[in-house]
Nucleic acid binder design. Structure first.
Lengths: 385, 385
DNA sequence: GCCAGCCGAAGAATCCTTTCTGCATCGCTG
DNA sequence: CAGCGATGCAGAAAGGATTCTTCGGCTGGC
């Protein structure tokens, strides 16, 4: 009979003291310590009302047996897995983008640290992936990097009640829980002012054909600045995900009849692209051409000449994103008030937080002196903290 | 009474058709479809003996209800979570290393893709982290990048019966399931031969003070090559995890009385470090100094001059590591035979697989021509495939 | 001396899915 | 027509930890 068989199996397990699987379970600890399962759970988790003697005893027995609670069982029972999804946009089949390597690496590094400090781990999940992969892993929340307009993954997650925080303002009206972004308008405006202060008369822009918010906002800020100071815009746009197109676009920009005497490149490789193009046209940097690009790469400190860069401080972004997300997951009361106050202080959007950028001034953007100086972090007037 | 209370709750749930929690469970699907829980499970998983009509009906009902099986419950029942740990070595508090950004990013990207293609997701877990984080997530297997001598995490995982595959030969006698590495000796030897063919008379080395296998093997290969051709070794070692120390070491190397006329730098930033140092000493590259460094960064294609790099092909490493790991997890019979044959073909070590490197020849290592050429991938004689 | 109340700990339900086992029913063959 | 195999599906037992509820025993107050 079935019942009989089960009884036999259970009896065998209780005798052996170890489950047939090999690893010790909470039952084994309870039996070895001479207490109940409840007591073991309470002792190990610091709950319940137990005298310290019992607690210590149970802990020592658990240690001796090498007991590790089953993460799957705990997740099932408590409904929390301690896992946070890190969603990255994809071009083609491959996760990550070429143009944002350094940014993403630094962002992910900081996010990993921040999550770990609060007991969470990060799961890498490309946005374009089968649904089954997404539902195969229990997530407490998700970070989305640069979500596209009507991201189906985000909608699905929100529908399931899973908090979603995005790096980058959500396009369209994506229902994210919160978002973090740089103040791109302020950054570009400040940078163009810096160019002008260095004597630039006609400032060019190397931008992208993509519709992501970063590209949109930065380009808009450039156009607005041009309109304000009365300069004709001079720019070239290229598909940013193509690793070769940047060099070509830089070349086109310097080949124009209305050649700019200063160029800002929106993407990481644009600095070297522009230096190479300048060499081809016999232009000296910074004497004939001022150059700045947005990059997190340290190579620009040692190029010839060193290139001024705009850093988006991805580390701070990653840390903040994780903090907001975990606050939302744990429903901390602090999170709500913090979010609200940040909202009030920065923008009318809900749950948004704007972070300052940093202009790292090097030789390529200064006509007078070639000495390397570093500006103090710039904070947009609207940012909190 | 308790029993009565429970009965009431259960009855309420069965009436509502939806669990109070909000999301639909398998019970709800079964009730809505008018079949049993078993039938739902079998229909959705393609198991059991069911006519296609039933299968389709159940699937349509599940879709309509937006049913997603609970990953936690499935993991608990099946014992497989579909999660693979990606362990990264840490310096100080922060995960990832500064000197290996590009390598690690590319490796992780490829590993993520490869894992996803086989239905697994990657969890980022720094090696130095509390045990509780490790036991809080159910892992089917783990990838370890450059494990240190007596890595306690690896031992613990192996003790628990979790497969571990390492990127880099395990130091000491760490009991990993398998490992993947480049043929560093062959790579360095080939590279030094290339230097010599370009006319180098005294080749220097920029190496690290670390004890990791990469540094050890590469340095040993350099020393062996020097001994073979009768050249006095000329090298500087510095702590590779310090982002500034490389520039200083490059400077020291070129300041020596027995200044080399060619230098190989083991770490990613060494190319720019050496170019900058050469400028300071008025040395022209490649006329007065030949330069090669080991790097995955694309910036060396556009430096002045472009720098020859040794690529470890991290993408191939990442893919292979994941394949070996998943084969081990799923106990595929193919894995065992493949492993054995690879072992026989390459080295006496167990479960090791050696991958070819690629020398990307650019202007900095050729005295005659400045034209950019790319060597075909070099395959060490021992490598399979 | 008795009872209220607290302390320490055990029992059992619960989380949700997979899967083993087994019961009907139907058609077919001998 | 009886018996037998195949088919379609249901019941219920894991799987391992958390936690709500309960219960016995001991102490202190009156």
């Amino acid at each position: 009979m079935t019942a009989a068989k089960h009884q036999v199996r259970r009896a065998a397990r209780e005798q052996s003291g170890r489950r047939p699987g090999g690893r010790a379970g909470i039952r084994d600890v309870a039996a070895a310590a001479g207490v109940s399962i409840t007591t073991v759970s309470d002792a190990l988790n610091g709950k319940g009302r137990l005298p310290d003697t019992t607690r210590r005893h149970v802990r020592s027995v658990a240690d001796r047996l090498g007991y590790r609670p089953s993460a799957a069982a705990r997740a099932l029972r408590t409904g929390k897995s301690g896992l946070i999804g890190l969603t990255v946009t994809t071009y083609g089949e491959e996760p990550f983008t070429f143009t944002e390597f350094a940014y993403f690496a630094e962002m992910a590094r900081a996010a990993t640290s921040a999550a770990l400090a609060r007991g969470y781990a990060l799961v890498i999940l490309p946005a374009t992936s089968q649904h089954d992969v997404w539902s195969n892993v229990a997530l407490d929340g998700t970070v989305v990097v640069d979500p596209s307009d009507q991201d189906p993954v985000v909608s699905e997650l929100v529908r399931q009640g899973i908090p979603v925080v995005s790096d980058g303002r959500p396009a369209g009206n994506l229902p994210v829980t919160a978002w973090v972004d740089n103040d791109h308008e302020a950054a570009v405006t400040h940078l163009l002012d810096h160019f002008a202060a260095s004597g630039a008369r006609r400032i060019g822009l190397l931008t992208g054909t993509g519709t992501d918010t970063y590209t949109r906002l930065s380009t808009a800020a450039y156009l607005a600045w041009c309109a304000r100071v009365g300069q004709d815009p001079v720019y070239e746009a290229y598909p940013a995900h193509d690793p070769c197109a940047g060099a070509v676009a830089a070349d086109r920009l310097l080949a124009r009849p209305d050649r700019p005497d200063a160029v800002y490149g929106l993407y990481d490789p644009n600095g070297t692209d522009l230096l190479a193009a300048a060499r081809r046209y016999g232009l000296r940097v910074p004497d004939d051409l001022l150059v700045i690009c947005c990059s997190e790469s340290t190579v620009y400190a040692t190029t010839e000449p060193p290139v001024t860069t705009l850093s988006l401080k991805p580390g701070r972004i990653g840390t903040t994103v994780i903090q907001l997300l975990i606050d939302a997951i744990e429903g901390s009361p602090e999170s709500r008030s913090a979010l609200l106050s940040a909202t009030a202080a920065t923008t009318a959007a809900e749950g948004g937080r704007v972070m300052p950028t940093e202009l790292i001034v090097r030789a390529s953007s200064q006509r007078r002196s070639r000495s390397v100086t570093v500006n103090p972090p710039r904070r947009p007037q609207a940012a909190d903290q």
